[in-house]
Deep mutational scan, measured.
Amino acid sequence: GAPPLPPYSAGGREVTMKKGDILTLLNSTNKDWWKVEVNDRQGFVPAAYVKKLDSGTGKELVLALYDYQEK
């Protein structure tokens, strides 16, 4: 199953993602919540729920390892 959710501390809205989604990583300075862009929406997802990909394009991409439903 998915890892436990860290307390929400990102101070911005969250976004929903599905397992297998490829998201653009915008900011990973917060260790628990990373800012991503998905379907032209920006928001935060739990860092433990995604994995960085080596895209080779200069853009940082992450793979959704679990479904996440915004609150």
Rank of each mutant, 00 (worst) to 15 (best):
G58M: 08
Q69A: 12
A48T: 10
V38F: 14
A64N: 00
W33M: 02
S28G: 11
K59N: 12
E60K: 10
T16S: 15
Y68T: 02
G1P: 14
E37T: 06
A48S: 13
Y49C: 05
T24V: 15
P4Q: 09
S55T: 15
S55N: 13
S55D: 13
A10G: 08
V45P: 01
V50T: 04
T29W: 07
Y68H: 05
K71D: 14
K35S: 08
F44H: 04
I22Q: 05
M17I: 15
S9E: 10
E60R: 11
N27R: 05
A47G: 04
Q69Y: 15
P6F: 01
T57N: 15
E70R: 08
Y49G: 02
K51S: 09
V45H: 00
G58H: 12
V50G: 01
G56M: 14
E37N: 04
G12N: 06
A10H: 15
D54S: 13
D40S: 14
L53Q: 04
G20R: 01
Q42D: 10
W33N: 00
W34S: 02
L53C: 07
G1R: 06
V45W: 00
F44R: 02
G20Q: 02
S9R: 14
T29F: 08
R41W: 06
L25R: 01
A64W: 01
V15W: 04
L5Y: 07
G20K: 01
K19N: 03
K52G: 05
V62G: 13
P46S: 01
G20V: 00
N27Y: 05
G11N: 13
G11K: 10
E70W: 09
L63R: 06
Y68I: 03
A48W: 06
P46N: 02
P7H: 12
E60I: 15
V45E: 00
D21Y: 05
E70T: 12
N30R: 07
E37F: 05
V38D: 09
A48Y: 06
G58Q: 08
F44K: 02
W34G: 00
K31P: 14
S9F: 10
G20H: 04
M17A: 02
D40M: 13
P7M: 08
R13N: 14
L23T: 01
G20A: 02
D67I: 02
N30H: 11
L53D: 03
P4L: 08
V62S: 02
G1F: 06
L26N: 03
S28V: 05
P7Q: 10
Y68S: 02
N30E: 07
D21I: 04
D32Q: 07
Q42N: 08
K19W: 04
I22V: 12
Y68P: 00
D67S: 06
L65M: 08
V45F: 00
G12Q: 07
A48G: 09
L5S: 07
K35T: 11
A2D: 07
V36C: 05
L5K: 08
K19I: 05
A47T: 03
P3A: 06
V50N: 00
P46Q: 01
G12I: 09
Y66L: 04
M17C: 05
P7L: 07
D67A: 04
T24K: 10
K52R: 12
V36H: 00
V62I: 06
Y8K: 10
K18Q: 08
L25G: 00
S9N: 13
G12T: 06
F44P: 00
L25Y: 02
